[in-house]
């Protein structure tokens, strides 16, 4: 939709109710490192992901895919540009406000799940609600969500008792339990075999369409791209269709 190097459009937020939701990056630039060894991780990146849309970003290592997730996920402050979540610009937020945006608007799915070792599958979801300061009524019902990702039978198991695919399913449920408006997915199939990878990405696509979340998935895995609504390529910090 809005990739390329068009200059920022100040009126883009007001173009319609539908466009207010989701994720919008405008002219985002990010330089990493200091002194002589600076790298342009993101070079004037524009990206719009509508609610319920599943966008994949592929590209070689070091192309800036993780930086894109970090900026969109309120983990890093870009040098310039705007990052809008639900129409709210988070690019200049303080670290305290960033944490609040992460709790309230963003869901992360990490490589190999990154679950908390001490918690059962069900508690992973309840913990995410606790961190966000939500009661179960504000978010999704954890039991129901586990059921939806096909993990109800593993509700009482801890991460070390789960397979890689199962961990990733719990990780997806954990990211969605707070009803985020943006879901950011980092290499979800890095540790999985082909059949499992396909299942997981199919699940992500299904949940994205089902819950109307704007999903960005960074991946190396070209076999799973069939499930995505759009595929963008990132090279040297630049994004293209």
């Amino acid at each position: 939709m809005t990739t390329g190097s068009t200059s920022t459009r100040p009126d883009s937020r007001r173009t319609g109710a539908a466009e207010r939701g989701g994720l919008l990056l405008e002219g985002v630039t990010l330089t990493l490192g200091d002194g002589d060894a600076t790298v342009t991780a993101l070079d004037d990146v524009d990206l719009r992901v509508a609610p319920g849309e599943f966008v994949a970003i592929v590209g070689p290592s070091g192309a800036g895919k993780s930086s894109l997730l970090a900026v969109a996920g309120a983990l890093t402050t870009p040098d310039s540009g705007r990052v809008l979540l639900d129409g709210v610009d988070i690019a200049r937020a303080s670290s305290r406000e960033k944490a609040r945006h992460r709790r309230e608007r963003i869901g992360f799915v990490f490589q190999s799940g990154n679950l908390i070792p001490a918690l059962t599958s069900l508690d992973q979801l309840r913990f995410a609600l606790d961190v966000a300061g939500m009661r179960a009524a504000d978010g999704h019902d954890p039991h129901e969500l586990l059921e939806r990702v096909g993990m109800a039978h593993r509700a009482g198991h801890r991460p070390h008792q789960l397979s890689g695919g199962e961990r990733q399913r719990v990780g997806i449920a954990r990211a969605l339990v707070t009803r985020p408006s943006v879901l950011l997915v980092d290499e979800p199939t890095a540790a999985l075999d082909r059949a499992r990878s396909d299942d997981i990405v199919a699940l992500l696509a299904h949940e994205t369409h089902e819950s109307g979340v704007a999903t960005v998935m960074v991946t190396h895995d070209h076999d799973v791209l069939g499930h995505c609504d759009r595929v963008l390529t990132m090279v040297d910090g630049r994004l293209s269709e």
Partner: peptide, 16 residues
């Protein structure tokens, strides 16, 4: 450390 990073990414405050 990694676990704490994940929890912070989930939006937990330092105080929490």
């Amino acid at each position: 450390k990694h676990e704490l990073a994940v929890i912070r990414a989930m939006g937990a405050s330092t105080g929490y």
